Amino acid sequence: MSEHAALIAPAAAAFSTILRGIGDTELTARTPCAEYDVRALLNHLLYWGPWLEAAGRKAPPPEVATGEAKAALVGADWLDAAERQTARLVDVFGTPEAWQGMTALGTTEMPASIVGDMVLGEFVFHGWDLARAIGRTVDVAPEAAEAVYASAAAMGEQARSMKVYGEEVVVAEGATTFERALGATGRNPAWTA
């Protein structure tokens, strides 16, 4: 939804703050995403960022020589690369136009608003993953929490069938909206490193 465009910049700013808190010794720390340590999660973000950007611009996907598993994108300059990529995603998805109409993520055509919600989710959910991995907390604005919860609930079954989300985690009664969003994506809000 194009009104979510206004949520992108604040979510990206919080995400960038988390990135800047990651030290070299923390790259091997495990994350709430069972298959990723911090380095692998950063690699995931750096790999898929250009695909999301292209979808937001309604442009062809990037030409890549290898898949995510074989990409080695977390070099000495990973922070600079991640911050530049974050800024590009804000430039694209911070405008309502990126959320309108149809687009393609790779070869899959879909509403552009779904891709926009993916970008917001990348900043919010993976920001939380990285923060937890390095023993920090992250504040999620109530509006962003509502948006990512609505998206996670709507996409839940399909995302689980595609192995994008884990099995839903039942959260405590009285859980916050963001905790419910985490649970909907298969994350345990109480996870610690």
Rank of each mutant, 00 (worst) to 15 (best):
D91S: 10
V148H: 11
E122T: 02
P96D: 12
P62Q: 06
Q100R: 15
V164C: 01
Q100C: 07
V169A: 01
A112H: 11
G166I: 10
T95V: 04
E143T: 12
D80C: 08
A141H: 15
P62D: 08
D139C: 05
A152R: 02
R132V: 02
S161F: 12
K163N: 14
D77C: 07
V148W: 03
A112F: 13
A154K: 08
M155V: 05
L130W: 01
G166Y: 06
V74T: 08
G121N: 01
G116R: 00
G127F: 05
Q85W: 00
K70A: 12
V138G: 10
A76D: 15
T108M: 10
Y165W: 13
V140Y: 01
A144I: 05
E167T: 12
V171E: 11
V124N: 00
I114M: 15
R132S: 11
A145F: 15
L105V: 03
V119D: 10
S161Y: 06
G121Q: 01
A150N: 07
A141K: 14
M155F: 15
L120F: 04
W99P: 01
E143A: 15
G166R: 11
M102D: 13
F125A: 10
G156V: 08
T108A: 10
E168N: 05
W128S: 05
G127S: 07
E122A: 09
G106D: 00
A150T: 13
T108C: 01
A141N: 13
V90Q: 09
D117P: 03
Y149C: 00
A98E: 11
T86C: 07
A159D: 03
A82P: 06
T86H: 09
E167K: 11
A82S: 10
F93M: 02
S151Q: 04
S151M: 09
F125I: 09
G135L: 00
D117H: 15
A98P: 09
P96G: 09
V170T: 13
A87Y: 03
E97I: 03
V148L: 06
Q85C: 08
E97K: 15
D91Y: 05
E122Y: 08
M162D: 14
A141F: 10
M155Q: 10
E68V: 04
E168K: 15
A150R: 12
V92Q: 13
A69L: 07
V90L: 04
T103M: 05
P61V: 00
I134W: 07
D129T: 00
V119K: 12
A98F: 07
T95A: 13
T66Y: 09
E68L: 10
A159H: 15
A104D: 02
P111C: 03
D91F: 04
E109G: 13
A133P: 00
A154R: 06
G101C: 14
